[in-house]
Structures are given as structure tokens and as C-alpha cells.
Amino acid sequence: MNKQKFDKIKEKLRNSSVGIAGAGGLGSNAAVALARAGIGRLILVDFDKIEESNLDRQYYFLDQVGKIKVEALKDNIKRINSAVKVEILNQKLEKGSMEKPFHDVDVVIEALDNAETKTEFIEEVLLKLPDKPVVAASGVTGYGNSDRIVTKRFGALYMCYDEQAKSSEDDVLLAPRVCLMANWEADLALEIILGEDSGY
């Protein structure tokens, strides 16, 4: 391993922060990936409680069913990397103030479920925090054909995108594809924070 590169990355990540909107399939898995990578600070926003049906793809456990997602996620992260500063907001993101929790993070990850809310969130953050990098995902359903996933960049917006995937109303949500997208989002956040990997 290239220790010099590793140390530089660890140092940079320790001083960086990511805000995540949603703590479901995308958000919980992206948060855990970033915590393992050594991100310094996470802001997690979600209003929901854990249901048993979430466990097919979300980073929670049977004994956490009924708990508030952001609280349980903070517990899980602390069991992996206690050095991460985790700030949680147990609230619904409301139209008109969706960008509020994310003013002072380096990167925002959109990890919401409903297409309408996703669109509103992206529009609002891009409009109100114009220079803030936003990583979003669209097309997380189904299985297989994962090489259709691409990163599309539009200015400060980075889309992790499979345009042929169906809506979750018409298709299944399963751990492999959802976790792929979540980790793709987390990886994009690293790339934004660290700059393109030069190999050294």
C-alpha cells in the first residue's frame, strides 16, 4: 500500500464533512461507507422510524426495528468508527427550507426515495447553495444490468444514474443494487473532496 497517499487521504477526509438527506437504503449505506473511509463529520437528516421491511436493504438490524432511523444510524456508525462526528436531525425536509441543514458541509448527498421529493431537493439546493456539490441518485430499483449505471455531471450536480430503471412503484428494491448506488454516491463524494485520483 502507498502509505503516503493513504495518510494524505485520511488527513483530508478527517477535515471534511458530508450532509446526507435521507437515512433509508441510499443514506444509511452511504453514511456507513463514508464513516469507514474516515470522514470527519456527517450530518444525517431523516424523519422516519425503522420497519422490519427496511432490513432488506438498509443498514439497520432486527433489534433496531421501531427506533428512529438517524439515532440508530448514529449508533451503528459509532460502533464502526467512533471518531466520526455525527450530527442528526430527526425531521422531514420541508419545501422552502430543504437546504437549511446543509449550509456548512463540503458535499451534499441526496438519498431520498420519492421522485417528487428528490427533484424538489435537487432544485432547491442548486438554487440556494449554487456552489455546493450535490450528489444524487436516480434509478436504484431492480437487479442486474448494473453496468448501465453512469455518473453524469451537470455543473455542481453529480448524478448517479440508470435511466432505464423503473420507479420503485413498479419494481423491487433489493440490497445489491441499492447498496451499489449508495456506495457510488459515497465514492463520488470522496472524489469531490479529494480531487480526481491521480494514482499517487
Binding site: L26, A111, L112, A115, K118, S168
Partner: peptide, 9 residues
């Protein structure tokens, strides 16, 4: 650029 937002997360 037209990006299609698809439900699921």
C-alpha cells in the same frame, strides 16, 4: 440536459 428522476432509495 434532461434528467429523469426515478423513485426509489
Amino acid at each position: 440536459d434532461v434528467i429523469h428522476m426515478i423513485s426509489g432509495g
